[in-house]
């Protein structure tokens, strides 16, 4: 790295050498050499400026919003299309931004045969992500859980469902699906889902990005599936799951301060 920088800054070094020569024998120096020195120096400084700019860009991109830099991918390709829209979505599946029905990653529109938008099942998040209430991680369900419904539900000629049934139904081809992880904390952060869900279900005022079907139960709590959107955004409206929040430390600390939770370093870093 140092070697590379030496080569890049070479014009600066040469300019400095020329200045030394000019100082030593001022009268005998040819005019072209006197003119060359500032040109080289400006060139060297220019390279330095460009490098600084590039470095600043990379740093802000990394520390700011989650841009796909340095291997950070917001919305990775999954081995098969699992549409959260159909399963967890509520009511007609219409994209809030465009006003049109959702489009699957393969390009199909989520419409019925008569052209009306499909209607989401409105399944509870914790039907599949069961462990999230009790465990640090939310977990992905085994293929068997998918198969418990899709043994009979869904078209037999659907490409994605055929893949799913191969993975989960037939003994010869049974194997887990290698889902790509979307939300990943750094190795030095210990995040535990369960206490956050306990707290938010009992304190609905702290929930942000409330889902469309948000409702507070008579005893002042909410269902566990209504709190996820605080950090994960509107997953029910995602054909392919993406990370929408930066999930950086500042966000954690701001929320912990607002809710009077512990903010010591040892809370997450141990």
């Amino acid at each position: 790295m140092k070697r590379l920088l030496d080569i890049l800054y070479a014009p600066l070094y040469i300019a400095a050498e020329i200045v030394e020569i000019i100082k030593e024998k001022d009268k005998t120096t040819p005019t072209w050499l006197k003119l060359l020195a500032p040109v080289l120096a400006v060139g060297g400084l220019g390279i330095f400026a460009v490098l600084s700019f590039l470095q600043a860009f990379v740093m802000t991109a990394w520390f700011g919003n989650p841009l796909p830099v340095l291997g950070f991918d917001q919305s990775p390709e999954q081995p098969m299309h699992f549409p959260h829209t159909i399963h967890a979505g509520v009511g007609p599946l219409i994209d809030e931004k465009t006003g049109q029905p959702y489009v699957s990653p393969s390009g199909d529109m989520r419409v019925n045969d008569d052209g009306s938008p499909m209607v989401g099942l409105g399944m509870d998040c914790t039907y599949c992500h069961k462990q999230v209430i009790e465990r640090p991680w939310s977990g992905v369900p085994p293929v068997e859980l998918c198969i418990s419904c899709h043994k009979v539900i869904g078209d037999s000629d659907n490409e994605q469902l055929t893949y799913l049934r191969q993975k989960g139904l037939y003994e010869e081809t049974k194997s887990p699906i290698n889902w790509e992880r979307v939300h990943r904390m750094p190795d030095h952060v210990r995040f535990n889902h369960a206490p956050h869900i306990w707290y938010l279900t009992e304190n609905p005022d702290s929930i942000q990005n409330k889902p469309v079907d948000f409702e507070v139960l008579p005893d002042g709590t909410v269902n566990a599936s209504k709190v996820c959107s605080t950090c994960h955004g509107n997953v029910a409206g995602m054909e392919q799951v993406a990370q929408v929040q930066p999930l950086k430390m500042g966000q954690c600390v701001a929320c912990h301060r607002a809710n009077e939770a512990s903010v010591g370093c040892e809370t997450c870093h141990h």
């Binding site: 750094p186 512990s262 370093c265 040892e266």
Partner: peptide
Amino acid sequence: SYHTVEGLNVQIYNR
């Protein structure tokens, strides 16, 4: 090297 409010001396590895 960090002293918590609960009187523990812990090491913050990422620092």
